[in-house]
């Protein structure tokens, strides 16, 4: 059967419905979390990636199961795309023992090391070197896995960006650095915080490929990242892929968004990555309108179910406080 769409080798047309569903799971999960924070039903803070679903799902779609990722403070999407159960994620945000971190990590620290999610990170730029180290393990033990390191435009101004990418480039490590450029590091516009237009341009100074993709077009993301992952797996070393996107919500739960205009937000909402994927799938006849609706409804139901799961899960006991600490 000939393929209607230009897809990387790892992704088949039959996989697209699943990817479409993941996008909706992320969207519903985050909207639910947003609602709970607004109502004060869960505490702490959270960083939402609503509007950025395609860069997470598209990047991880080209991975094999054995591959690994490092995520960021804005990491719910990466988690879901890497196969995390929304039940365990929601329970974590509720601070329950059934959460991914037994309720001790919260939104910013969800990890599933066994499944190759080496963790979200509360330190901006904290993942660069960890991803590089994981890629070193792959190379030294000849395990063949590739590591995706997600980071934002803001993190590319951290010193750890330079040190880790330089190291990865000289050792030709199997790691791909994925910049989700959502235009703002908290309130700081990327265009005011760096003197180059694209983070991907910085790749040149490490002698590695740097590519810009449309972060709201899952097909463009898959093709761009797919190429970089193949290259890494073939022993040709790291790349930077920059996905241009936009976060619809504020930086965290308390953000009046004074640093940008409502018009700009509206413009980006018209580029909704989920709607764009739906249109393509329907127009190409890979999904009927009804099937698309059903997938969306299923995703919503799963997220609703995760709320029940979380709310009915036990709280940790005070005896759990000192568990898992060794020094």
């Amino acid at each position: 059967m000939t393929q209607k769409l230009n897809l990387p080798p790892r992704v088949a047309e039959k996989d697209l419905a699943d990817l479409y569903k993941q996008m909706w799971q992320i969207r519903f999960f985050e909207e639910k979390v947003d609602e709970f924070f607004a109502k004060g039903m869960i505490h702490g803070t959270t960083h939402l990636a609503v509007g950025q679903e395609a860069s997470a799902v598209g990047s991880i779609a080209v991975l094999e199961d054995r591959d690994k990722i490092t995520s960021t403070h804005r990491g719910h999407g990466h988690c879901i795309a890497k196969g995390a159960e929304v039940n365990g994620m929601m329970a974590e945000l509720f601070g329950r023992t059934t959460g991914y971190c037994k309720g001790k990590g919260g939104s910013m620290h969800i990890a599933d090391v066994e499944k190759g999610n080496l963790g979200a990170n509360g330190i901006v730029g904290g993942g660069f070197a960890i991803a590089t180290g994981a890629a070193l393990t792959s190379q030294m033990k000849k395990e063949g896995f590739v590591v995706l390191c997600f980071f934002g435009d803001g993190a590319s101004n951290e010193g750890s960006f330079h040190e880790a990418i330089n190291l990865a480039s000289i050792w030709k490590l199997p790691v791909v650095f994925i910049c989700e450029n959502n235009q703002y590091g908290m309130s700081g516009p990327a265009k005011e915080m760096m003197n180059v237009g694209n983070v991907a341009q910085r790749a040149e100074s490490y002698g590695i490929p740097g590519k810009v993709v449309d972060g709201n077009d899952i097909f463009d993301v898959m093709n761009g990242v797919g190429e970089a992952v193949d290259r890494a797996r073939n022993g040709e070393g790291p790349s930077i892929v920059e996905a241009k996107t936009y976060r619809w919500k504020g930086h965290s739960k308390s953000d009046a968004k004074k640093y940008r205009t409502r018009e700009e937000e509206k413009e980006w909402r018209l580029k909704d990555p989920i709607e764009r994927m739906r249109l393509i799938l329907v127009v190409e006849g890979l999904l009927t309108e009804e099937e698309a609706e059903k997938i969306k409804a299923d995703a919503k139901e799963e997220v609703e179910g995760s709320v029940d799961f979380a709310a009915n899960s036990p709280h940790p006991t005070l005896d759990d406080l000192m568990e898992d600490i060794y020094a």
């Binding site: 070197a129 393990t137 030294m140 750890s160 190291l167």
Partner: peptide, 25 residues
């Protein structure tokens, strides 16, 4: 390979050690 000379990058090599340790080294 095992006596691994690094660039002068304490932030990167410490984090690389963390990532390598987390994945089995």
């Amino acid at each position: 390979e095992r006596i691994r000379n690094t660039p002068i990058s304490e932030a990167a090599i410490s984090g690389t050690a963390v990532g390598a340790a987390l994945t089995g080294m």
